[in-house]
Lab assay of single mutants.
Amino acid sequence: MWEAGIQHIELEKGSKGLGFSILDYQDPIDPASTVIIIRSLVPGGIAEKDGRLLPGDRLMFVNDVNLENSSLEEAVEALKGAPSGTVRIGVAKPLP
């Protein structure tokens, strides 16, 4: 389960991407759907250096692409398709 509020994070995407990987996970509230979760951070990558994204965070959007009900493929496309420079990411943090 995740917090209702969405944290807005801006990262600078370079030639090596944003520095994290994702996975799809069965939604605990709606078993028929999936949620997109941050799986891991690349050591020394943009996301790890920034410090705000953590494994277990739920990915909600990338720039103007809503990922609340997306497939893993759609989420990967949104991340890979984001141009270099500032990328806006929304995440919901896990409940304590």
Rank of each mutant, 00 (worst) to 15 (best):
V65H: 09
L59R: 01
E3V: 05
E10I: 08
G56A: 03
E12N: 15
S33E: 08
I22N: 01
G19W: 00
S21M: 08
N66T: 12
P83T: 08
E48R: 03
V76Y: 13
A4W: 03
G45Y: 03
K13C: 08
Q26A: 12
A82D: 03
P55E: 14
E73F: 09
V35L: 09
A78N: 05
A75P: 00
P83Y: 06
K13A: 12
D57L: 10
P83G: 09
Q26W: 07
E12Q: 09
R52S: 04
L11Q: 01
V35M: 14
L23A: 14
I22H: 01
L59H: 00
P96S: 09
I9A: 03
V42E: 14
G17A: 05
L54F: 12
P83I: 05
A92C: 14
Q26F: 10
S71P: 11
A82C: 08
L11F: 13
G81A: 15
A78G: 04
E10A: 06
L95D: 08
V76F: 13
D64F: 03
A47H: 00
L54P: 00
G19E: 05
K93Q: 06
H8Y: 15
D24W: 03
L79V: 10
H8V: 08
I46L: 09
G19R: 00
S84N: 09
D24N: 10
P31H: 08
G51N: 06
V35P: 14
A82H: 03
F20M: 04
A82Y: 03
L53M: 14
G51V: 01
H8I: 12
N66K: 13
I36C: 08
I46H: 12
S70I: 07
P55V: 11
K16I: 06
T86R: 15
E12V: 15
E48K: 07
V76P: 00
S21P: 01
I37G: 05
D27L: 08
A4M: 10
K13R: 05
G45W: 01
V65W: 08
A4H: 07
V62D: 01
D64V: 02
N69L: 10
A92I: 10
V42S: 13
V42D: 13
D50Q: 06
V87D: 01
Q7M: 08
S84Q: 07
A78Y: 05
K16S: 06
T86H: 10
S40K: 13
S21H: 13
L67R: 01
G90V: 03
I36T: 06
S40N: 10
N63Q: 05
I9K: 01
V35E: 13
A92T: 15
K80R: 08
L67T: 10
E73Y: 11
D50A: 05
S71Q: 11
L53Q: 01
S84D: 10
W2Q: 07
F61A: 11
I89H: 00
V35W: 10
G81T: 11
L11C: 03
I46M: 12
P55H: 04
D27F: 06
L72S: 15
I22Y: 02
G85M: 03
E48L: 04
I29S: 11
G85D: 04
L18N: 01
W2K: 15
M60Y: 04
A92G: 10
I6K: 03
D27H: 09
E3F: 13
I46G: 14
L54M: 14
P55R: 11
L23G: 10
S84I: 12
V62T: 02
M1C: 03
R39W: 03
F61W: 15
L67W: 02
A32I: 13
L95H: 06
G90C: 03
G81E: 14
T34I: 08
R39A: 04
A75E: 00
I9V: 04
G5L: 07
